[in-house]
Amino acid sequence: MTTAIARREPIFPKRILLDQLIFSIMVWAGFAVFMFALTFIVSLVREIEVSGWNIGGQPARWFAFVVGIYIGWTVLQLHVTHGGTRKGFAIQALIFSVAYAALLGALFVLTFFLEAGYYGLMGWPQALHQPELYAHPLDFGMALIQWVMIFGVWTLGGLLIGVAWYRNVILGALCIPLGLVAVSISTYTFSGEIGPMNWLRAFVPPQPGAVPAITAHLAIIAVFASLTWLAIRDIPIKNKSEAG
């Protein structure tokens, strides 16, 4: 074995991204077609007045969340058992989350444009059913900012819960209320709705809007990323059978 061997850990998460890229595009295409078909079925019983994708597409964030858990729970173990370091994984996972949020955000907003063509053919108005950062589905810039931030928070939230849960069940459970708080703040900064956690109003700016939204999401992402690193830093990779 005389060949020089690279002694530096790759920091760009090429493989994880590629795996998720293909899988996510397939799921997105299926989901978008399903939503368009569903809108058509709904149109048979009632008038279509708002963007169906803006309603039905909301749960897409749960998909990002599950992918985050998968990265934190499974990819972490695989990375370290194959000779990688926790630090190398943490950097890759962070880069992945940002890149993945950008991909999902772009796909989400792209769907509004596909929907616009579809609605144009059918003669339906593509209005919003609730206040968003964007005034109209085709407000590309604002829509993209909002959805990249949503997917970023949800992917990182999944990552945090995945690693925390892997480290310790109690730690994982403790992350759930934290996630709920983060999600409430996130939603508030777009819509002004805070949901059941009304006490949070004391901690958020009086009005939703682009600046509070970006500030809040960067803060949430910073908190999630820091906690994820604290959980990963010296995480023991357990033996599945826990023997010996």
Partner: peptide
Amino acid sequence: YENFAATSQICIIRESGDTTSEWTETIND
């Protein structure tokens, strides 16, 4: 510990087979 120059030279195969994922992976993955 946490040193890629060393860990990249080390391979451990534990009984539980934790070098492979059970979610959706094929042998090729």
